[in-house]
Computed example of a mutant assay.
Amino acid sequence: MRTAPLAIIVIAQLFGTSLWFSANAAGEDLVRAWGLQAADIGRLTIAVQLGFILGTLGFSLSGLADRFAASRIFAVCAVIGAAANAGFALLAGDLGAGLAWRFVVGLALAGVYPLGMKLVVSWVPEQAGAALAWLVGMLTLGTALPHGVRMFDAGWGWQATLLVSSLLALLAAVMIFRLGDGPHLARRAGAPRLRLGEGLYALREPRFRASALGYFGHQWELYAFWTLVPLLVTAARGAEAGSPAGPAFAVIGIGAAGCVLGGVLSRRIGSARVAALALALSALCCAVYPFATGWPPVLLAALMLVWGASVVADSPHFSALSARACAPESVGSALAFQNAIGFAITMASIELTTRLWPLIGDRVAWVLLPGPVLGLIALRPLWRAP
């Protein structure tokens, strides 16, 4: 495996995707400053998801993800995302303005996350599963990073957390622009012209369909869980315990270790079986969690950490399985299409779970349960294959 390009890409992914949940790390302050409710914090996340969906659909259906250098798209989008995130911190004064800025952040992330996956495949296609595990691990750590920054709040206000994320995204843009694209996804001489709606054609391949459907079930659970983590932590510890930033960072951030461990395991049992194992484990956590709220704190914390590790450990393997099922010249469009549908599903699960949270509390975990169960069933042709 070529270590240097992979290291640059995964660190840039960590920095770039810190934009994703930067507003959630400031959730408590926004509730006080703007008079928001838990569902409103969920809407800020949904605005990012909507922007991401429209952006990935644009890249996929137009074929832009495969017409231009992935490194250039990544760099431009990281700069746009950094600017929009700073705009949210410095210019937004209410929920309406905040939603608009977060939507633009989501649009920009459409050129960071899927194109980061394409960059990995372009540099180390022979190690796609393990390499993408590192990439998604950095996405996970990037998601948790604003909570980590918030832990060290020096009294500068919630805006500082977001501005740190913007600076990191700018650094990511410089890193990827200087790295450039790898040699392995260059268009072949005589390859067919890219068609409008290129990403849709991948669905004709049964292996891609199985992987994509498994991914859709996984997405029902993942981002809703990440959105709920501060609420789950506060409910478990009590509001008097103070900010949930530290435990939230641990529960979300441990997913990076889950991704890396899954990448190592995939070399022995394959990506499909790793994805199936992670789906089964996170489904078990969904089923058990509402019964565990009376457990001793150490056991409850252990369950949350297992859930945090398993809920995302399958993600890189869906990308690896889907990339292998596609023609090399359409990988970017196919992955962008898969991401667009998957993130559309997250909007529904985030909206539903944040609305139900005040009514049913911890039992909201059962609302997440159908995702990993149905994903496991959809993936069955791949993990049952010899």
Rank of each mutant, 00 (worst) to 15 (best):
F15A: 14
G16H: 07
A33P: 08
A33H: 14
G35L: 05
G35Q: 12
A39Y: 06
I41M: 00
T56Y: 05
S60D: 14
L61D: 11
S62C: 04
A65Y: 10
R67A: 12
A78I: 00
A82Y: 02
G87K: 07
A89S: 02
A92C: 08
W101N: 06
L119A: 01
S122C: 01
A131E: 07
A131N: 04
W134C: 14
L135S: 06
L135A: 06
V136A: 14
L141Q: 02
A144E: 05
V149T: 14
W158N: 08
A160K: 04
S165A: 14
A169P: 13
M175L: 15
D181P: 02
R188L: 12
L194C: 10
E198Y: 11
R204L: 07
A212D: 03
F216H: 15
Y223G: 06
L231Q: 13
A236Y: 05
A241V: 05
A248D: 12
I254Q: 14
A257L: 13
C259E: 07
G262R: 10
R273I: 08
L277T: 05
S282K: 14
C285L: 08
V288K: 01
D314C: 00
A320C: 13
S322N: 06
S333R: 12
I341P: 04
M347E: 14
R355W: 03
R355H: 07
V367T: 02
L374F: 11
I377Y: 03
A378I: 07
P381K: 01
W383C: 00
R384H: 06
